[in-house]
Nucleic acid binder design. Structure first.
Lengths: 228, 228
DNA sequence: ACAAAAGTGTTGTACATACACCCATGG
DNA sequence: CCATGGGTGTATGTACAACACTTTTGT
């Protein structure tokens, strides 16, 4: 048992957003100090002495990106002795989900640069952040198979194909439209509205759907079991 | 971003063992220093500056309990500002599985007291350790539904009913023997030997089974999906 | 008219569930 | 011979997988 300990505690967040145009994306900031100056990295930073870990993540996200988080869950803690070249830092990581309107921050913020990157087209990242994103992505993949995911990532009303494309983007494989719809609708947390999608191109416009929040959160607690 | 940070980093371990006599049990140590002097607590302690988190857990387990760990996985990180009354400590917790022979440590060790406690009969614990054990127990519950668990908790050869009782103890509900056997055997990671169980009471002796390690670890990687 | 996307139903197969009687041993 | 625990099979329902054509809109 060491008498003196010299380890810092940080939090980092992998924030996922989704739009059908941009696909599944991750929020990154550009570092303006060494080490890894000018490299892209996850938003995050040291935990204050008096704040909880969740408070620290929320604070860092507000300070560095301004996004509005709809869901936040602890992911994993990374503590390899040399993951930060300056001194030892243990990072407790979280992953979060945000709605599409968060994508508009791109233009707003510029203190240090902030941007969305498609998950399939990430830049080189600082520290072990590439690894952290991989862990987060796998977690999201498994999560969406036993709990509903969508309310936190889509607009209030959306065509059914949005949800389907979201699942395809996260799972990174094609899905049979008919089977998928049967499975999802059976849970009863999706309500069909009579409104129709606004069109932005050719194609038959689809009905808009909405989450029934009571049933949704009930299922999120109880868990659902399904294969896509 | 605070300039000076005064947070310590610790690791704690929830070690599960199982025998049909004692049921699902957790390894605890009796604290001999304040705070919570003489209270039971999870094995653990501060992380050394040069060791990884896993090394720290292994070291603490060896120092404090002497058990031989067969499986170790990170569980969750607890960081509420006041979880330790002295100063702030963020604890990165792990859960582990050990084979039944570890139960014999009871007599051996006495530096500070070490003992197994049945999961349904835990004493009052120091800090937030009761909560940590609950999280670990739920994690083990879900884990055993999508990955094989048993090799790490049972002896090399065991009657099939041992595995069945293990599942009942962890899931805390009855299981249909015939359906359970069908499901487990279909995965092919269990081999039936011709040896028979040594009897310690009445009843027909059962055949002994053994894990096929290659198939077992393959399934542990790939994941299995089944309902009990 | 054509291209693009939405909508919809049936069939086979595999798996989960429910359920009860006989067998081998120790006392 | 009785008590204890081990061993086994069938029938039913549900859920997943595979699969193609029609409808509505924009251009």
């Amino acid at each position: 048992m060491p008498a003196l300990q010299n380890i810092k505690v940080a939090v980092d967040a992998v924030v996922f957003g989704y739009t059908s145009k941009e696909g599944l994306s991750v929020l990154l900031i550009k570092r303006n100090i060494d080490p890894y100056k000018n490299a892209w990295a996850l938003p995050g930073g040291l935990v204050g002495d008096a704040e909880s870990l969740e408070e620290a993540v929320q604070r860092e996200l507000t300070e560095e990106t301004g996004v509005n988080i709809n869901y936040l869950e602890q992911l994993y803690s990374f503590g390899a002795p040399n993951r930060d070249p300056r001194n030892r830092v243990v990072s407790i990581t979280y992953y979060g989900l945000v709605k599409p309107d968060a994508f508009e921050l791109k233009a707003d913020t510029d203190a240090s640069d902030v941007a969305w990157f498609n998950i399939k087209n990430l830049p080189k990242l600082a520290f072990d952040h590439t690894q952290i994103i991989n862990v987060a992505r796998n977690r999201l993949k498994s999560k969406m198979l036993y709990q509903p995911v969508g309310f936190e990532l889509l607009e209030e009303k959306f065509p059914f194909s949005e949800l389907e494309k979201l699942y395809m983007a996260v799972l990174d494989r094609p899905i049979d439209r008919r089977n998928f719809k049967k499975k999802i609708m059976k849970f009863g947390f999706l309500e069909e509205t009579t409104e129709k999608q606004m069109l932005d191109g050719a194609g038959r416009p689809g009905n808009l759907f909405r989450f029934n929040q009571a049933k949704y959160f009930q299922l999120q607690k109880d868990g659902i079991a399904f294969e896509i």
